[in-house]
Design a binder for these strands. Structure first.
Length: 376
DNA sequence: AATACGGGGAC
DNA sequence: GTCCCAGTATT
């Protein structure tokens, strides 16, 4: 892999890229501000998440938490509620923690230097380079999925882009190309090129401002780059979930902060074991997780959902509370809520899919009265 | 060096 | 269905 460009070539490459960017960049909400806090929020949201998905979340988040202090002083549950549906919830917990730390230890000021950013929770090499270059004009090259794809094609680089971490070749290539006079625009131009021209499939090479430097284009092998390691198939699990009704309210539980869907609320349930019916699993799991004895009624939904490392089939049942007092094993909190109140809690997307079915299914099968009472 | 961590857009 | 997205933390 030949990858050295002459100083003249580098100058020309940077100019072509920057001219193209200034003419063709998309107007995006976080490109209309110079507020480092706002740019930070956008970078956190954009991790592994497409621009189109982020835009409405970005607007809502900044409307609700317009500055660092507003975020730092908000309860985590409120922050999670605004993040609900965006995924990778550790991102927002880290953002919240970082905001609190900066308010407490740094007078609410944001750092300018890469090394300072890097020390904040949730800020890795990419975000540290992105913010310090875009908001503070520091000469740090970013390497994200777009940049790796562009570099992979430019230099016919055989390093797999999805290996962790990708050895460092992409970092040194990006660093070589970086325009140290305009690092922020240069970085955004590289990413924009990857997003809109040097796309994963069917790249628009005729529109590429630097195709003259692209070895993949010259050799007509754009389709074979970037090189990517094959991924293994996602395992599948079946889960039974119960909506436990009692006197018109339903039981929800909160997941612990660490791990999958940390801090979110959900309906109790768990894995269906071999030789067990979904309804049996539902009753057993509710007894194990929250200590209640319930009557499992009708199945109100079957939900297929894919997470990043496995797939689930959720079988959701309406349940009638019979007896027992809530004793949690697993969840860290619980609440009996009226159906109208469900909107106030952050739920995983898979749970949100059946929220509208809860009230009507209960009334259809058990009548519109108060539901079962209890001896608690 | 691998794995955990969401959800959805685009095909 | 599949691929992959402005990655980071943990093990």
């Amino acid at each position: 892999m030949k990858r050295e460009l002459t100083p003249d070539q580098l100058r020309d490459f940077r100019k072509r890229l920057l001219d193209w960017y200034r003419r063709h960049r998309r107007i995006l909400p976080w490109r209309r501000t110079r507020d480092p806090y706002a740019i930070w929020v956008s970078e956190v949201m954009l991790q592994q998440t497409q621009v189109k998905t982020v835009i409405p979340y970005y607007r809502r988040f900044l409307g609700r938490f317009p500055d660092l202090a507003a975020l730092a002083h908000a309860p985590l549950q409120e922050v999670l509620k605004v993040w609900e549906g965006l995924g990778y919830y550790t991102r927002v917990r880290n953002l919240h923690r970082a905001a609190q730390r900066l308010v407490r230890e740094n007078g609410g000021a944001l750092p300018a230097a890469y090394e300072q950013w890097k020390q904040l929770p949730g800020v890795g090499e990419y975000i540290a380079a992105a913010i310090s270059s875009i908001a503070f004009q520091q000469p740090c090259a970013v390497v994200d999925g777009n940049v790796k794809r562009v570099l992979s094609r430019l230099f016919l680089c055989d390093e797999p882009v999805n290996r962790s971490p990708s050895s460092g070749v992409f970092g040194s290539l990006a660093d070589q190309l970086l325009d140290r006079d305009k690092p922020g625009d240069h970085n955004q131009a590289m990413m924009e090129l990857g997003a809109t021209v040097c796309r994963p499939r069917r790249p628009l090479c005729p529109r590429c401002p630097v195709r003259g430097y692209c070895r993949a284009f010259r050799e007509g092998v754009q389709g074979r780059y970037p090189v990517r390691l094959a991924r293994t198939a996602l395992p599948e699990v079946s889960v039974a979930v119960g909506v436990v009704h009692r006197e018109g309210r339903v039981l929800i539980t909160q997941r612990r902060e660490k791990g999958l869907l940390g801090g979110l609320w959900e309906f109790p349930g768990g894995k269906i074991q071999p030789n067990e019916s979904p309804a049996q699993a539902c009753r057993r799991e509710i007894h194990e997780e929250v200590g209640l004895v319930v009557e499992v009624g009708t199945r109100i939904a079957r939900i297929k959902h894919a997470y990043s490392h496995f797939k689930v089939m959720l079988q959701v049942f309406s349940c009638r509370y019979l007896r027992g007092k809530v004793r949690l094993k697993g969840p860290v909190n619980f609440q009996w809520v009226w159906p109208e109140e469900l909107e106030n809690y952050p739920f995983p997307a898979a749970n949100r899919k059946f929220l509208p079915l809860i009230q009507q299914s209960w009334e259809r099968f058990f009548g519109p009265d108060d539901g079962p009472g209890g001896d608690e």
